[in-house]
Structures are given as C-alpha cells and as structure tokens.
C-alpha cells in the first residue's frame, strides 16, 4: 500500500483497516459497504470527493442498489492495481460481460452501465458499452427495439422514407 494513503488515513482519523483508509458507501436502498479508498477511487466521482476532502462521512450512492454496488465493488477488487497478477484470469473473468444471453444478464449490464456512468468508472463503462454493442451487432431493427424496449415513434411515412434512404444498409 502506498505510503501516501497511510499518511492520509492517520491524519484524517477515519476508519482504517491496517494502514488503509476505508470509505463508507451507502446504496440507494440503504446497504452499507466499507471499501478501501485505494479501490473506490477507481470511480472518478469518488476520487473527486476524496481529493476535495468530502469523503469523510458516509457517501450516498444514489440511483445504485446494494446489489449493483456489490457488483461494482467486485469489479473494483478485480481491477485494483497489483491485485491481479494473472492477466489471463482477469480477461476470463471479464469475458462474462461479453455475452448478454438472457434477460437477467441484460438487466445486470444495464444496472452496471447506469452505476458506471453515475460513478464515472471508465473501465467498467467501456466493458459494458462493449457488451451492449456486441449484443445488438447482429440484431434486426425490430430485435433492437425489443432489446431496448423501444416502440417506434416514427409515423409510417417517416419510417418508409428513412428506410428508403438507408436501404443499402439493409442489403447484404
């Protein structure tokens, strides 16, 4: 652990685990997590709070449920610098995000995307947007509407015109 973190922790007098300062995060539904500062600052939002000395009490993580926050923390733990020596292992673990096979996968990725966006976690955001892009790559217009739960809001004339303009993209 970096000496900077140690010094910071001893001067602020916050909860520590060994020499590591712990931050307290509270999910929208009230679940409380204690997370090492060195891990949680993978979130640009949280890092900003720490830098501004605003992370001394419980940090409310609005719009993120405890279940999702637990997944985010798992991501942080796996991606802590120096924590995973085996690059291959990390890639394998990350590959679970590559496929969105069913509804629950889709919902998990959605929740993670919203959390990654809110907390500004670039690596997680990148992984999840890539998963969504992969999932819709081969989908037809109707299948995409189904995936995103979108109803077409074009009137018939508009849709026909747009289809005609982009006809080439639908041909093999």
């Amino acid at each position: 652990m970096s000496t900077a973190a140690t010094a910071d922790a001893s001067s602020s007098g916050d909860t520590t685990e060994g020499s590591v300062r712990l931050l307290t995060l509270q999910s929208e539904d009230g679940e409380v997590f204690e997370v090492k500062e060195t891990i949680a600052t993978q979130s640009v939002t949280i890092k900003g709070m720490v830098d501004d000395d605003c992370a001394t009490s419980t940090i409310p993580v609005c719009n993120v449920t405890g279940r999702t926050l637990a997944m985010v923390i798992e991501w942080w733990n796996k991606h802590e610098i120096g924590a995973v020596s085996n690059e291959k292992e990390l890639k394998e673990w990350e590959s679970q995000f590559d496929t969105i096979d069913d509804k629950s996968d889709r919902d998990d990725v959605y929740d993670l995307l919203m959390a990654a966006n809110y907390l500004n976690i670039p690596t997680l955001l990148d992984c999840c947007t890539s998963a969504v892009a992969e999932a819709i790559k081969g989908k037809s217009t109707d299948e995409m509407r189904e995936f995103f739960d979108i109803k077409s809001d074009f009137d018939e004339k508009e849709e026909d015109a747009l289809r005609k303009e982009n006809q080439w993209a639908f041909e093999n």
């Binding site: 955001l125 509407r145 982009n166 080439w168 993209a169």
Partner: peptide
C-alpha cells in the same frame, strides 16, 4: 459510447429504430 463502436452501415440501420 455504444454507437461509436459501430461502422457506418450499422449506424444507418440504427437510425431506423426510433426518432
């Protein structure tokens, strides 16, 4: 971020999904 991952042909299809 998601759309930027696609080539133009796919984007042309995506345009037809919704306004």
């Amino acid at each position: 971020d998601i759309f930027l991952r696609f080539p133009i042909k796919k984007l042309a299809q995506l345009r037809c999904v919704c306004q």
